[in-house]
């Protein structure tokens, strides 16, 4: 039965893919090879669609595969399969975390973790900069700094950053505004 199979396959991905949405990619590749449910080329499409729609990439990809294989309910079941192990594991960790709160070693570990995660998030941000505001290929050809930076986008980036620091509106306001600007100025 296809629903059961979908659930099981995505349950395994949810259980073993450590490190977030993109970490599920190798598992999806293997799934494509072992089941033939979808072609490897579909994975590239999926990444593009997942990144261009709201929602965490990992969930989007699970839904997309499930939907392609077995329609709407396939999408629901694949997603539930992927989410279920997370619920079990995180609830278990939360419980033991409460027990060890105030423990010297645990607190010391978090003392090291907080700056590390700050660094990881900054790196994630810079990763987006590389894709959106820099033209690395063109820079490699011409070597002109002019070609490296997308000045129009940098300008808007500066404006957005200023507005975010100054007005403290809900992030959704800025995102909606940015979508409109993107269309108006044909980014």
């Amino acid at each position: 039965m296809i629903y059961l199979q979908l659930f099981w396959e995505f349950f395994k991905i949810g259980l073993f893919a450590i490190g977030g949405g993109m970490a599920t990619l190798p598992f999806l590749q293997r799934l494509s090879e072992s089941t033939g449910w979808f072609s490897p080329a579909l994975i590239t499409d999926m990444v593009a669609i997942s990144e261009s729609t709201p929602g965490p990439i990992g969930i989007n990809m699970a839904t997309y595969v499930g939907c392609t294989v077995a329609g709407f309910w396939g999408g629901v079941i694949a997603t539930m399969g992927e989410v279920l192990p997370a619920i079990v594991i995180v609830v278990a960790v939360s419980k033991s975390l409460e027990k060890f709160r105030g423990n010297r070693v645990v607190d010391a570990a978090f003392y090291g973790l907080r700056p590390a995660v700050t660094g990881l998030i900054a790196a994630a941000g810079i990763g987006v900069v590389k894709v959106t505001m820099l033209h690395l290929d063109r820079f490699r050809e011409t070597g002109l700094l002019n070609d490296l930076f997308d000045l129009r986008k940098l300008l808007f980036f500066g404006l957005f950053f200023f507005a975010i620091r100054k007005f403290k509106l809900h992030p959704i306001c800025y995102i909606a505004c940015a979508a409109a600007i993107g269309i108006l100025f044909a980014f």
Binding site: T118, T132, F157, F161, C177, I183, A186
Partner: peptide
């Protein structure tokens, strides 16, 4: 249109992440 909107959004997302990083 989807591509332009997304390009705009990604510029904004970087600014939002930077703001969050500073606060963290």
């Amino acid at each position: 249109y989807v591509q332009h909107a997304l390009a705009g959004i990604s510029v904004c997302v970087v600014a939002l992440i930077l703001d969050a990083v500073l606060s963290l």
